[in-house]
Computed example of a mutant assay.
Amino acid sequence: MIKRVVFVPQGKFTRRDYQRFGIELLRGNGFSVEIWDMTSFLYPEFATASAASNILDRSELIAFSDKKAACNRLSGLSESDFVIMLVPYMYESLWIYKALSKSSAAYAAYCANALPIFKDGVDGTAMKILHYLNTKPMALVKHLVMRLPFLFVGVKPVNLILAGGNKCLQYNYPTGRNTEILWVHSLDYDIYLQEKDKPDEKRNIAVFIDEFLPLHHEYSMFGIEPPIEAGKYYALLARFFDLVEKETGHEVVIAECPEANYEELPDYFKRRKRLKGQTANLVKQSKLVLGHYSTALSFANLFRKPVIFMTCADFYGKFEYYQIPEMAKWFGKKPVFIDSEDNIDWKFELTVSDEHYDRYRKAYIKTDDSQDLFFWQVVANKIKNWGTADGLLSRK
């Protein structure tokens, strides 16, 4: 019988994560819950640079500073524990998976918030990869190690995949013949369930789904150079928002990124309204959505709102340049270059393709057969029966 649920997050666990990952709901279902923070080992620079204001500070959060102690705790987990791995299966986290594999605890891999990923966008991809591997030998070592069979490196197969749409199983996890897929939905669908039956107040607004794009902490966390300088990016946005308001008559409102801290920055949005924690409600009330490739665009899909996907020439050769068209394709659109005001078909941009929206919903948000329950209630119902005839029997 499962008594304790242990989350292993990829980075610092925030107050928002506390809500998104259903800590109170799991407690209400009779489980004790702990969060084991390994950021000091996975991303040491980010661990020391993280802003404390948004980080969870509760007794259930255990931040490890000693790797040996972390390994001992992981390998000492019992059959009454169930682990939710939010950390991807990668070279840097291999030691976590190996330590966990020495325990008798079952574990799940979280795959529910997937996005469409471009397949072969970068020109000369193979040559660039070869150059990268030749100039950084350690990258080649990591690549080869992660291609080894997981059992060979001492990792047991994951027991349960927590899945969203039917295209979400695109990540590499150590799965075996006894691995089961639990079809749930994306976490944003939980918010949709809370919003969909509320009174429908329409407003003459266009909502920009902010991603804190050049300033997001994940750039430094993963050692990636931002695709554009912040001042230039926000100047392009402001000019394009002026154009949107002129052409459509819709006031542009900013659905602020949960990770953003604009209070400490210049007035990048030129006094436009910024609202944090209200993205779903704003999209529901809106007539148009503006964005790049955020998972929050699922709200535009669920509430059937037209989307303008925005890109710019500065993104060329960067991840964003190829990812945005891939996302737009699933909505039946092509990106608009916001550094050029030419050739924008405003009538087309204000349309919705039901065929594309239905396909995206099934692929990346929710399958037709999954339950209309909150995500972590579905998970709780599953692990309550763990080890019984109605639950999962795998104990590798």
Rank of each mutant, 00 (worst) to 15 (best):
Q19C: 12
A126W: 05
D358S: 01
R359N: 14
P116A: 01
Y173A: 06
N261I: 09
G231D: 13
D358R: 06
V336W: 07
M310H: 01
I181M: 11
A52Y: 08
C168M: 04
R15S: 06
K273S: 06
F13Y: 15
L302K: 10
V155T: 03
N178L: 13
C168P: 09
Y219I: 05
N385H: 02
T14L: 13
K347T: 13
L77N: 08
L282S: 02
D339L: 11
S101H: 02
V158M: 06
A296E: 02
N166M: 09
A63G: 05
T14W: 07
Y91V: 13
S104L: 08
P226C: 04
V336S: 10
Y192L: 07
S50N: 12
D345G: 07
W330Q: 11
I209N: 09
P88M: 06
Y316G: 05
T14A: 06
A163V: 02
K156D: 02
E247S: 08
V336K: 10
L169A: 07
F337W: 14
R4A: 02
S353L: 03
P137K: 12
D81H: 08
F303T: 09
D200Y: 13
T125I: 13
N159E: 08
A105T: 00
A63D: 01
V145K: 13
A328Y: 09
K196E: 14
P306E: 14
S101W: 07
M127T: 05
L373A: 08
L42K: 09
R274V: 07
D210K: 00
A230L: 07
G387C: 00
L187F: 10
A255E: 01
L94V: 03
E92T: 08
F7C: 06
I117M: 14
A163R: 06
F152N: 12
D66S: 11
A238K: 10
I338L: 07
L169Y: 01
D267R: 05
Q10W: 06
T295E: 04
F374P: 00
D210H: 00
Q377Y: 00
I383Y: 00
A280W: 06
N166P: 00
S294C: 12
G121W: 12
L42P: 04
A105F: 02
R304P: 08
V153W: 01
G124W: 01
M138Q: 11
L236K: 08
E259M: 14
K347Q: 14
T311N: 14
A300W: 10
K119P: 11
M146I: 03
V145N: 12
